[in-house]
Amino acid sequence: MPGLYLLTLLISIAGIAVIDRRFTLAAWRTPGRTAAAIAIGTVFFLAWDAVGITAGVFLKGDSAALLGVDLAPHLPLEEPIFLAFLCYLTLVVHAGAMRIASARRRRLDAPAGRTSGGRA
């Protein structure tokens, strides 16, 4: 089914955006920096792909799930969308991991046995 991969990517991006919104991790915390990081990462990986395609390392396989639109030889339309998704996912996972680590540090740093207003 042509376009199935693109549809899957868009649904995945929407799912990560819901998680991001729920926990205010990346785009809803710092939208400008998030957009810049995704753009820079996507451009970097597209350049990486271009080098790999030129060297003959990366080739586009035949798949009925691809839409069939190529931006360049061996570079399907879905590739930059996948790369942007990968960058966004990485930002959300990193922000979530940092939040968990910070909460654990605060919990470990809290004095044991102290209550607010009482003596230890």
Rank of each mutant, 00 (worst) to 15 (best):
L46C: 02
A55H: 03
L67V: 07
D62I: 13
R119D: 08
L108H: 14
L89M: 14
K60C: 11
I100N: 07
G32A: 14
R33W: 04
S102L: 12
A84F: 01
M98L: 15
T34M: 00
I40N: 09
T30M: 07
R114L: 12
I16A: 03
L66C: 08
L25V: 11
V69R: 05
I38H: 05
R99N: 14
R33N: 11
I81S: 00
S102G: 09
R106F: 00
V93L: 15
P80E: 00
P2Y: 07
T24Q: 09
T42P: 00
F58K: 01
A120L: 09
A72W: 05
R33Y: 06
D20L: 10
T34Y: 00
G41K: 03
M98P: 03
I100Q: 15
A95T: 11
T54G: 12
A55K: 08
A27V: 13
G3A: 08
L6K: 10
D62A: 08
L75F: 15
A47S: 10
A84H: 06
G96H: 06
R114K: 15
G68N: 10
S63V: 12
M1P: 12
D49L: 00
F45I: 05
D62L: 05
P76C: 11
L67R: 07
A36M: 15
F58T: 04
S116H: 13
L25I: 09
E78Y: 03
G117Y: 03
L83P: 01
R21D: 02
A50I: 05
A112G: 09
A50K: 00
F23L: 10
P31F: 04
H94A: 15
A35I: 11
G3R: 01
L71V: 08
L66P: 03
L66A: 13
M1T: 15
S12H: 02
R99L: 08
V92Q: 10
G32M: 08
L9K: 06
K60S: 13
V43W: 02
W28S: 08
K60T: 11
P80C: 10
F45R: 02
A37C: 09
A14F: 12
R104F: 11
F85L: 02
A95L: 06
P80K: 05
I53E: 10
H94Y: 15
G113D: 03
G68V: 01
G117E: 05
F44R: 07
G52H: 03
R105E: 14
F45V: 08
L25R: 05
P80T: 07
R99T: 14
R104N: 05
L67I: 11
G56N: 01
Y5R: 07
P80R: 09
G68D: 08
L89A: 14
L4K: 06
L67Q: 10
T24L: 15
R33L: 13
A120K: 01
A50P: 06
P2R: 12
G56Y: 02
A72Q: 03
I81Q: 01
A35K: 03
A50F: 12
G68K: 14
A35G: 13
A27K: 02
V92K: 13
P111E: 08
I38C: 12
I40K: 04
P73G: 00
F23S: 10
L75G: 02
R21I: 04
G41N: 11
D62P: 02
A17Q: 05
G68F: 00
A50V: 01
W48L: 01
A65M: 10
A27G: 09
L9T: 04
G32P: 01
P80V: 10
T42C: 05
A64M: 07
